[in-house]
């Protein structure tokens, strides 16, 4: 089990094409995914002013919308990269949105999902593939 406080290596994360990152760990025989949004996405969204978190306990499918982040004049939906049940959300985050930019891969995590199906993992990108996508978009 990964301890909090250890610097996360973003090169070891998985990424979705809609800019969510995924960190996997084993837990009681199942997989739990911690999910956030990438530094690149936060930078593109500019000054964030609001975010909406999902409810704990909700079943979510890969590709399904689970929340929103807002800047002054844009709303960006957040899409789950995995299938499973939401077991935790970072409830302090909406009051400290700057964390998303300051520490996107550690304190800026958004939710934890206990996977019910691992097939969607195959569609995620590794760091280098994601970097390539970002350079094309940027």
């Amino acid at each position: 089990m990964q301890k909090e406080g250890i610097t996360v290596n973003e090169e070891q994360l998985l990424y979705s094409s809609s800019h969510e990152w995924v960190r996997l760990r084993e837990d009681e025989g199942g997989k739990v995914a911690t999910i956030g949004i990438s530094a690149f996405a936060v930078q593109q969204l500019t000054d964030l002013v609001f975010m909406e978190l999902p409810e704990v306990g909700r079943q979510i499918a890969a590709g399904e919308e689970f929340g929103e982040v807002e800047s002054v004049k844009a709303v960006s939906p957040l899409y789950s990269p995995v299938d499973g049940e939401i077991i935790a959300v970072n409830s302090e985050l909406p009051d400290r949105l700057e964390t998303l930019g300051d520490d996107p891969y550690e304190k800026g995590w958004i939710m934890k999902v206990r996977l019910t199906d691992e097939s969607s993992l195959a569609r995620l990108m590794d760091y280098s593939a994601y970097q390539k996508q970002c350079s094309e978009e940027g």
Binding site: V49, F50, E70, S71, V72, K73, A74, V75
Partner: peptide, 12 residues
């Protein structure tokens, strides 16, 4: 709070 409004959120 303009993100509530139609000119940004459109069909949502």
């Amino acid at each position: 709070l303009q993100t509530r409004e139609q000119h940004i959120r459109r069909d949502k």
